[in-house]
Nucleic acid binder design. Structure first.
Lengths: 346, 346
DNA sequence: TTGAAAGCGCTAACAC
DNA sequence: GTGTTAGCGCTTTCAA
């Protein structure tokens, strides 16, 4: 069992530099009232000892941990399926790390109790200063919880019912969906289905409504199905069912790429050619879609930018960054590849 | 900007219970020498105030943070492709969370400098007690670094050159590979290729060697190609090249599922039927492989168990858990699906 | 069985 | 311009 045996402390640095503790502190935190001579001595001593202020001591002293939390409640299966989060997190890291902030990640099953318990614990134990929230939910309980816990949080996505919860979103979160509708219409599709994720997610509902609306405006009423869970098995089952219908769709739009890929597999297995007999559209534009055959037409959204913007916004809420405009997050847009083609009406 | 305005402290609890600070501490930490009466009063007060010891204060006092670090240096593209990590992390969480441990995650590009700087910073700032290491590398610099930093770490995988680095691995990490060789041989494949990831990963080299060895023992010499990077584009390019060879393989084994899926796409795009004209084998058995058409034959390994075992081992190193046998991690094994079939020799 | 007091490593008032 | 000092919230001797 290791101890922090020989880690130097501020006093060691002070001693080596021949100054007082507070002088060291002032130098390291760039506060004024220090002679250049002293500053240099301190910096040299610190470098020599490889000393860095203990995050724990700073946290205790200042009651901020310089660490943000992210709790993700999703089934393992789902985590295993969709690399979605990793990209967002790496975007967030890009702004957190340079500011000396850490990210506490908690992954857990899809259990509301465990989820809120985790938030509570993180706050009570004062492990984090704020949170990054993903996947806006219908009737999202997290906003109220975090207000109760009095901790800032930034949602990646669109809050339910215009809740004042701080959030970040793409410059045009639904544009890709509109493009998709237009694209399918242009290709002559009239029997179209939309397979959404569970209806407790805000984005899934919005995207579906946007898509349906756009199709309706053109006189086409899409069939809509909501997967009970957000995974590939559902996508397959639903697709099979859809394809058995007498008025089977000539195009299906899925809530995400993994579902789309699974759906494509189901269609092909049923002997239906994609895109010859069925056009397929995904969402998120994950790399795998492009390498698939046929390559997946998908709505791209810049997950890394979203993560980065959310982190920046949170840092501002924490008083760590000067206020400023939320950085631009590119609009969503449709990437047309091979999985969509002209409708073939039998 | 929020402050920990009204968070109760141990003194609040002590006051409410009418006892001293140390009495509260003793009760909460289950140390003896406390009358039942006092204990009850303290527990009630703590519950009423919803007080939990501040992790920061405990850390400063005890010089352990109850938090472990995990730094992953991989390109965003790769993170976007392979959901590999999320599963391991959720396995680790399963043992960390109940013990009150947190996980600090740092994702970054594939930059050795930045990587080691991150380890150093995490240790110097005393943000974590130990580390979980993934993806054993050839000449892995992390072991020496962590010894220098004097922090315990557990590697998920097999350390390079029998380094004494603590690690966890499947009960039979290469069995799946042997099964795969046997399987392809049984199907009559004689022209076989193995596409590995970059050769700086231990597991990729071991798997390749195991596979090649097994094939050789049966008189077949596989072509081997190492992807320079570990991603789908490489898989595609390499596959195309392989398929253009005059003696083109009738079966290709890939280092992971995403590469296999991409390779399959490349083959299909080149007009080669899978598995009719080419058999394909992946590794990791991610869910998406099963929903693909044709469903991917793949070597399964229990990533969640690996993550959990690693976390448990680390906790033991930290003196947090009694020693005991490393929990069983199921052997790797081949899952035969649709992407492999009898070889068709022209 | 209980409580007083010291101190973990740091920052920020405040005095010099 | 510099040093002294008082905590941040907790655990742990040590006395009572």
């Amino acid at each position: 069992m290791r101890r922090n045996a020989d880690q130097p402390t501020i006093d060691d640095v002070a001693a080596l530099a021949g100054v007082s503790r507070s002088a060291v502190s002032k130098v390291m935190n760039g506060r004024g009232g220090i002679s250049p001579k002293t500053a240099t001595a301190v910096r040299e001593a610190a470098a020599k000892l490889k000393w860095v202020p203990s995050a724990t001591a700073v946290a205790l002293r200042g009651s901020r941990t310089r660490s943000v939390g992210m709790v993700i409640a999703r089934s393992t299966d789902l985590l295993a399926t969709d690399p979605y989060f990793a990209v967002m997190i790496s975007g967030a890291e890009q702004v957190l790390a340079p500011r000396g902030y850490g990210l506490q990640l908690h992954l857990m099953g899809d259990d509301p109790e465990a989820e809120s318990a985790t938030y509570r614990k993180l706050v009570r134990e004062r492990r984090v200063d704020g949170f990054l929230l993903t996947e806006s939910r219908i009737g999202d309980p997290r906003f109220a919880l975090l207000r109760e816990l009095d901790r800032p949080a930034v949602l990646i996505g669109i809050p339910w019912r215009d809740d004042p919860q701080p959030h970040v979103q793409s410059a045009d979160p639904l544009r890709g969906m509109l493009d998709a509708a237009r694209h399918l219409l242009d290709l002559g599709h009239r029997r179209v289905a939309y397979v959404s994720g569970p209806d407790d997610r805000v984005h899934t509902v919005q995207r579906r409504e946007t898509f349906v609306e756009a199709m309706r405006a053109a006189g086409v009423t899409p069939a809509t199905v909501a997967a009970r869970r957000f995974d590939s098995l559902e996508a397959r089952t639903i697709t099979e069912e859809l394809l058995r219908r007498p008025d089977r769709p000539t195009a299906i739009v899925y809530a995400n790429d993994m579902m789309a890929l699974a759906g494509m597999g189901a269609a092909q297995r049923a002997g239906i050619d994609v895109p010859g007999g069925l056009s397929v559209v995904g969402h998120d534009d994950l790399p795998i879609g492009a390498w698939h055959y046929p390559a997946l037409t998908s709505v791209a959204q810049d997950l890394a930018s979203l993560g980065a913007a959310a982190a920046l916004t949170l840092l501002r809420l924490l008083g760590e960054e000067p206020p400023g405009p939320i950085p631009d997050i590119p609009p969503t847009r449709l990437i047309v590849r091979e999985s969509t083609a002209k409708a073939t009406h039998q």
